[in-house]
């Protein structure tokens, strides 16, 4: 294998990679750019990336009876304030945080003790339980959304926070992952803790949990990214109550009343929803890529 760089070949490779990068970035460019522009600039496709930022009159504000000069705003301010005014976006974002955090915490509370028992305790039926975990790994929760929905409807739980969280409380993948990790923890560590008189319960949270932080962090990223971005299950579980909307559901609402003036605020909302994870990803790329591709370790 020769390692010298052929300048022409190298240039062609970069040209291909740059072309790909442009296509990948295109929608992000459109999203951010249109969140900065006035409705007129969006409709006429003018103004470059940032738009001219000429002050514009908010016609809706005028209709409400305010004096014309009190309703003048620059497009960027208009779009981002409208994102929060047209819909309770702040509430949606808090719902999103509440739901994603609850899901992750419950997943850990359920999975850690089970993983500990499967990896470090001997008990009758252990192989069976592990077999059950391996079998459940085959079932994608999205695929069985309908029967879960029927069950929740039967006990009257649709349109509640609980319905957003319940299907995700069990992460067999989390159990499997933590069990594999705990297998590598030396038994001596646990025996020493038992000598000190620790109960099995406190061993899980005071000995095993601290050793598992790197694996848990990767799992946290895996879980949070999946549920912050999830649209299918919230769409199924929440039918009318807008107070329970997660960010993707809230964004989807904008499409209902689509006239030209809504595009700017809609793109602003999209930007607000997408930015937190993108920013976190850019800051901690290695960890994120590890976390997202965790399922590759199966």
């Amino acid at each position: 294998m020769n390692n010298q760089v052929h300048p022409v070949r190298e240039a062609i490779k970069h040209a291909v990679l740059i072309l790909g990068a442009l296509i990948v970035i295109l929608p992000f460019y459109v999203m951010v750019s249109y969140s900065l522009k006035s409705p007129h600039e969006i409709e006429s496709n003018t103004g470059g990336f940032f738009g001219a930022q000429e002050p514009m009159v908010d016609e809706y504000c005028v209709k409400l009876g305010n004096p014309r000069d009190a309703c003048v705003e620059t497009p960027v301010v208009y779009n981002y304030t409208q994102a929060f005014k047209k819909a309770p976006l702040l509430r949606y974002l808090l719902n999103g945080i509440l739901v994603t955090a609850s899901i992750f915490i419950i997943q850990v509370l359920v999975a850690l003790p089970c993983a500990y028992a499967l990896s470090k305790l001997k008990f009758w039926g252990r192989d069976f339980v592990f077999g059950l975990v391996m079998f459940c790994l085959l079932i994608p929760v999205h695929a069985i959304a309908l029967p879960i929905y029927i069950m929740l409807a039967k006990i009257g739980l649709t349109n509640t926070y609980a319905s957003l969280v319940i299907p995700w409380t069990i992460s067999v993948f989390g159990i499997f992952l933590m069990r594999q990790f705990f297998m590598t923890v030396p038994d001596d560590l646990i025996d020493a803790a038992r000598m000190d008189g620790m109960s099995e319960f406190s061993i899980i949270w005071k000995v095993m949990l601290p050793t598992a932080v790197p694996a848990l962090l990767a799992f946290a990223i895996f879980s949070v990214v999946a549920h912050w971005n999830d649209y299918f299950w919230p769409r199924v579980a929440i039918t009318g109550n807008r107070d329970l909307y997660t960010p993707p559901l809230g964004l989807r609402e904008f499409k209902g009343d689509a006239d030209g003036s809504i595009w700017g605020p809609m793109m602003a909302t999209a930007t607000i929803i997408v930015t937190p994870l993108i920013a976190a990803f850019l800051l901690a790329q290695r960890r994120f890529i590890e976390g997202i591709t965790l399922s590759g370790m199966k």
């Binding site: 790909g20 990068a21 990948v24 970035i25 929608p27 992000f28 459109v30 999203m31 990214v225 912050w228 971005n229 649209y231 960010p247 993707p248 964004l251 989807r252 904008f254 499409k255 809609m266 793109m267 999209a270 929803i273 997408v274 994870l277 993108i278 990803f281 850019l282 790329q285 994120f288 890529i289 997202i292």
Partner: peptide, 17 residues
């Protein structure tokens, strides 16, 4: 990094874009 961005972004938002 660039090629991984779409994996991170909410698909619903990007679909609308």
């Amino acid at each position: 990094t660039i090629y991984f961005l779409p994996v991170m972004a909410a698909l619903l938002a990007m679909a609308l874009v």
